[in-house]
Design a protein around this nucleic acid. Structure first.
Length: 415
RNA sequence: CGGGGGGUGGCUCAGCUCGGUUAGAGCGCUUGGUUCGGGACCAAGAAGCCGCGGGUUCAAAUCCCGCUCCCCCGACCA
């Protein structure tokens, strides 16, 4: 991509309304734009990051044996009345009546819909187990949207639902999902912890939430400085480590995922039943597994930035390489920059070539802000010594390389 | 939903207390020139229903009333 042809723009100052680091950086990098409170458009850089995250999630969910589907956002309220969550969710759920007088809502989550679907499918123990998942927009009428896309009224979630014949099966799938989640978050460059949590209105007996430490987080956990034991901080008092008997440290966090062993909560009411080997009717054991996909962008930035801007982990970076010809009016420099761009793109490495007629300083500042893992700079050294500068965003360490070694070097860094 | 703060060019803000020329500054944008490896400089420009509606007044960004939107703290949060 050539920067002069892109929708990319940057701001020196973030709008004052932005509080958290990630939100400020996302606005300065023009990754998202607020339409009204809690409702955001994803612009090219933001959407690219989002797509990268989604594809990591798909890979890991698929390899854990889950199958992707897409459920509707429009849902009949009647379905929610059956499980009693109509009242439980209250005004969080966006509801309306259509012209035929049907009472509908925009799905804040999908347990009801997927359970209804499964009820229609499952007949025999032979149909079990299976896991369905989707990546889809959820709607929640948040009283107070916050921190940009961290808490918004319309957001993208990956929600998975498992169906098995008994508790043993449920526990196995739950464990499998937990491992898949760990892989996903690790690949996203996140330092996370999982803690036992309160299932809340989703329900069930066992649940774990995945948290990342983040200054701009809205949750908190307690962590033991000695043994590293972590505990959910739902109650506000200081916790004492059960092993070390020391006061635990309170850390601000952002919840990025939550998994639940639902048991029969939904399957019983909505009738997901099957016949076992003995011909006896049984109720399916369910689990559900959520990841706040759009929120992950914020989490990643919270954990991967410095004073100059974003420091993208390579796997989720909107582009892997920024190519900066310091002087575009020098044809030799610009031509070579274009050559490199072409060669890297041909090898599947996504590049942003800063072909703007700007001074070097402006380009460097923007490259740092946008945070692509590698920067290739062409300047005087190219003219005099035929050397390019390859600089790693995270370490800010650079080295001079020959043009013919670019691909190899870039690949080595991006591994 | 309770409490607080706000809405003035694309962004950051001043002006409002005490009403009075053509509503300002910095950044950004356009044009020209000088610069040219870490957010350059000079010059000339474009760009504002001063959130919306009503009222007071000879006169309203400024005072009064209503509405609306945004932000922060709290409560809530799958």
């Amino acid at each position: 991509m050539f920067q002069t042809k892109s929708f990319i723009s940057t701001l020196k100052e973030a709008p004052e309304s932005a509080e958290s680091n990630s939100h400020r950086l996302m606005l300065r990098a023009n990754m998202v734009r607020m339409l009204v409170a809690g409702v955001y458009s994803y612009l090219p850089l933001g959407y690219r990051a989002l797509s990268k995250i989604e594809s990591i999630i798909r890979q890991e969910m698929n390899s854990a044996g889950a199958q992707e589907i897409l459920l509707p956002s429009l849902q009949p309220l009647e379905l929610w009345q059956k499980t009693g969550r109509d009242e439980l969710l209250g005004e969080t759920m966006i509801r309306f009546t259509d012209r035929r007088g049907r009472k509908l809502c925009l799905g804040p989550t999908h347990e009801e819909v997927v359970t209804e679907l499964a009820a229609n499918f499952v007949k025999s123990y032979r149909d079990l187990p299976f896991v369905l998942y989707q990546i889809q927009t959820k709607f929640r009428d948040e009283l107070r949207p916050r921190f940009g896309i961290v808490r918004s009224c319309e957001f993208i979630m990956k929600d998975a639902y498992s169906f098995d014949r008994d508790t043993k099966g449920l526990t196995e799938i739950y464990e499998k999902m937990r491992l898949a989640y760990e892989k996903i978050f690790r690949r996203c460059g996140l330092d996370f912890v999982s803690v036992k949590a309160d299932p809340g209105v989703i329900g069930g007996k066992v649940s774990h939430e995945f948290m990342v430490a983040a200054e701009g987080g809205e949750d908190a956990i307690f962590k033991c400085k000695i043994c590293g034991e972590v505990k959910s901080a739902s109650e506000a008092q200081i916790e004492v480590c059960p092993h070390c008997r020391e006061d635990m440290e309170k850390i601000n966090t952002l919840e990025i995922g939550h998994i639940f062993q639902l048991g029969e909560k939904y399957s019983k009411v909505l009738g997901v039943k099957f016949l076992d080997e003995a011909g006896k009717q049984q109720t399916v054991q369910m689990g559900c597994y959520g990841i706040g996909v759009s929120r992950l962008i914020s989490a990643i930035i919270e954990q991967n930035h410095d004073k100059d801007g974003i420091v993208w982990p390579a796997q989720v970076a909107p582009y892997q390489v920024a190519i900066v010809p310091v002087n575009i009016s020098d044809k030799e420099i610009l031509d070579k920059a274009c050559d490199i761009h072409k060669a890297l793109e041909a090898s599947g490495i996504e590049c942003l070539l800063d072909d703007r007629d700007e001074r070097a300083g402006v380009k460097f500042k923007d490259a740092d802000l946008l945070g692509f893992p590698l920067r290739i700079t062409l300047g005087n050294k190219w003219l005099k010594e035929k050397k390019l500068e390859l600089k790693e965003r995270r370490s800010q360490i650079s080295k001079d390389i020959r043009a013919e070694d670019v691909l190899e070097e870039v690949r080595r860094y991006l591994q």
